[in-house]
Design a protein around this nucleic acid. Structure first.
Lengths: 151, 151, 151, 151
DNA sequence: GTGGTCTAGACCACG
DNA sequence: GTGGTCTAGACCACG
């Protein structure tokens, strides 16, 4: 009935959990993995999946609703709004390139050698790319369609 | 008498202010813009400069002291410790790996292929790594020396 | 649900309040009165019990967390870490040596002969070491268990 | 003209420096090493000897004056008052024994073996007792008479 | 001037 | 309920 999200929380990052949830959902929208009308997991479902308190998901969904990306329909669930993609922000690939750019710039400035940096990247890509949860679904590796279309 | 820091607080980032202060000072140390023995702005000075309560800077400086990067000298000020660069480097390299990890995870999760991602990285590393500005002007990017030499 | 601590603040001692709190909790751990996994009073609870501002307890708990003795779990409380006893023991033994050092220095400085001092020490050690109360009742001297077992 | 004091400041103790100065002077009085009418070093003299700021000694002398132990005579110096010994407190040897007693009790309770404790004591006594600054003066090892009697 | 501690009170994130 | 961060303001120790 809804699309299963793979949300991963990092404790070290310093970012509030609800924000990490928000960011990752928003990212799904930006990449087109989630589309207008799609149903999200219920608050309880997502909370238990990622191992946090339901209130934390309530907060994340609430913020997304506030920004117009999500619509909570009482008794039915959470759905991506019509304008979701436009609201979710700029082109993800541009955003991604910018993040990589500033990361690389900073690291080289901090004294890392290009080869070192390259090695770390390759190591991470291999490590994460070969993890079982991502390997299956191909081009949309972290999204599985659980039920049908939108309501 | 001390080195003026350009610390930029972003309210949107979700990171606590004291953490942003810590991270940016650490970045100065890692890039070599701040060196062992250098005096930092006083707590009150930095607090008023970035517009926060002194206690917030106390917290940031205190954490840096805990990690051995800073030395607080009562009545005299805050100074970079002898092993500052090495210690900051260790911290930074851990943080860098975490940032790369999240970035890669998110990108793969969003549907990028490992090869695509790898290509973008290599491209960025080559582009930035070959720019001449990094090896010259980049070493003291955001710092002005106020007053005389170090104490 | 948590172990009630009897923390006594001495205004005359010259030691900061947060330090007195730290030292006394550490003492509980070293003597085995508090063990790994035990829950401590909440910050607010302890603060109101000893009549100080919560921030003061935050500082004490924070320092103990830094030294690895305590684990703060957001929304759940403060718990003694796994290695608490070993870590507290290291700290304590350092402090003990310092205290003995000052005491001996002061006494010699005040005119005591090394032999006199040595005699007093041996006398005390023998007197206290042979008292039976130490091996029985002494192990949980100031602690009452509130509520059920440990979490 | 005045009695030279050997004051030793310990940075780790957490006690304010001015208080360590006070305590040690008071101790000299209690043990009889300093007597009514004796002149103390000047503020500057003592400050430079122990390596602290003169204001710190001002504070210590001020507190001792406040408690009636010291008399500051403008332009002449600092002298022990008539009632100094009575005001300085109880018999030092009793006080010393009490400190040793609670230290030993605590350490045994914390799990130290009597032999361990004894070893630490002997080690400290030997180490400090053989230090050159204490070896010379015999029964009043840390006090040298610099000038004559009281004014 | 410098850092260090503490209070009273607020609001947030999380369970 | 729990801990975490921040403010405004005070006073202390030290140089």
């Amino acid at each position: 009935m809804y699309k299963k999200l793979h949300i991963q929380i990092e404790d070290q990052s310093g970012l509030p959990v609800y924000r990490q949830v928000m960011d990752q959902i928003q990212q799904y929208v930006v990449t087109g993995a989630l589309e207008s009308g799609d149903q999200l997991p219920s608050i309880r479902e997502l909370a238990s999946q990622i191992g946090v308190n339901p209130q934390t998901v309530v907060k994340a969904y609430g913020e997304l609703e506030h920004s117009g990306i999500l619509e909570m329909r009482r008794g039915r669930g959470a759905f991506l709004s019509d304008g979701a993609r436009a609201l979710a922000g700029i082109d993800y690939s541009r955003q991604l390139r910018e993040r990589i750019h500033s990361l690389v710039r900073e690291a080289l400035q901090a004294g890392y050698h290009p080869e070192q940096l390259s090695d770390i990247f390759e190591e991470m890509i291999e490590e994460i790319g070969s993890s079982p949860s991502l390997r299956e679904a191909g081009s949309e590796p972290d999204l599985k369609i659980i039920g049908g279309g939108s309501p």
